[in-house]
Design a protein around this nucleic acid. Sequence first.
DNA 1: CTCTCGATACTGCCCTGTGCAGTATGCGTC
DNA 2: GACGCATACTGCACAGGGCAGTATCGAGAG
Lengths: 202, 202
Amino acid sequence: MPPTRTATSHALLGLLAVRDWTTYELAKQVKRSLNWFWPRAERKLYDEPKRLVEQGLATSAREHTGQRGRTVYRITDEGRAVLREWLSEPPAPRTVEFEAMVKVFFADAGTPEQLLATLERVEAEAAGRIAALTEMAATRPVPFARRAHLSAIGLRLQYEQEDAVLRWARWTREQVLQWNDTTDPGDWDALAALDELARVRP
Amino acid sequence: MPPTRTATSHALLGLLAVRDWTTYELAKQVKRSLNWFWPRAERKLYDEPKRLVEQGLATSAREHTGQRGRTVYRITDEGRAVLREWLSEPPAPRTVEFEAMVKVFFADAGTPEQLLATLERVEAEAAGRIAALTEMAATRPVPFARRAHLSAIGLRLQYEQEDAVLRWARWTREQVLQWNDTTDPGDWDALAALDELARVRP
DNA sequence: CTCTCGATACTGCCCTGTGCAGTATGCGTC
DNA sequence: GACGCATACTGCACAGGGCAGTATCGAGAG
């Protein structure tokens, strides 16, 4: 039984296809790029490459800076082949974990102040991320220039997502201000809001 | 040491604040509502309510349909208090797991056909979800009518998210068709695309 | 020249959460 | 009376997260 290859395995294989990395560099790089759409704890990024080596998809080399060792990983031809084949497989559905939305959804268990505070935090988070994305987009020279086209479409997705959340948070804040309470929207017409969504044609 | 209360604990507490549920009903309901922004495996939804009972946040009652038993959960006053306080706490950052985007990001390890197939799958998934959302929005009478205002803003968020993904997938597909290859965008100007993002002002 | 501090480079441990197989019973329908 | 789908769970192995702990290296402060 070969150990199962997870999407995380293939994601790291993808980075290794770009260049060699030490685990530490890999961890930093994941934070900057993959983290946006495939977030993984640093802890995991120390285990996973070892599994790739076990499976012959990568090799590891031990280097030293004085007394301190470090491990450099390099993809193998088999690793490249496995990555290429994986690109054909149907991807898992996109999943979103949005704790703030849970708080919004159950806002009727609390006060309007709590709800507005949550919405403000959502807005601030989205705005912060948009700032980070525009900064990345503005960085010159472009890191990994030969992959600039892929970075560009990736950044674009992230931007569209964050912008959707930002616009939603602002819109919702305005609606909530018209409510009498979290349990009572007063004159605000929930059915009309649902009707508007129901009319959508893609 | 009290067992830690996760966001999942509070999410289920939120559902129990709406009405009593059997575990099975809870699992179905989570699939329809929470699953959009707090997806959890059915398996977990059988464990978690037991923990709520241990902590005095819910009570359980054993009922029977013939020989077959089932457990009905009900929130306690303390459960309601805990939920109310949780609404004040800063939410965890939103996280997205988007395997298809990993495949897009490393598309230069494969062919344009693979990339286009992935984009088509993304588009189909988003379109399917939008259809599900509009159907939910059109359902009359509105389920849990006294919570229609919260459903409406929740559905709106989901719609905005899916629409962003859908528009991105279509846009990206058009761009990719202009490339020579996954490794070579030809005349397509990646720097210009990055510049456009860099110019964004929120 | 030493001390501190942040960056580098990991490992162990316990917990949450997933997926899948397995085990029942209830109920409608052919 | 058999079949299939819904109901109602449990066990188990594994992926993944968070945090604490352990070192070394290199640059700058004093």
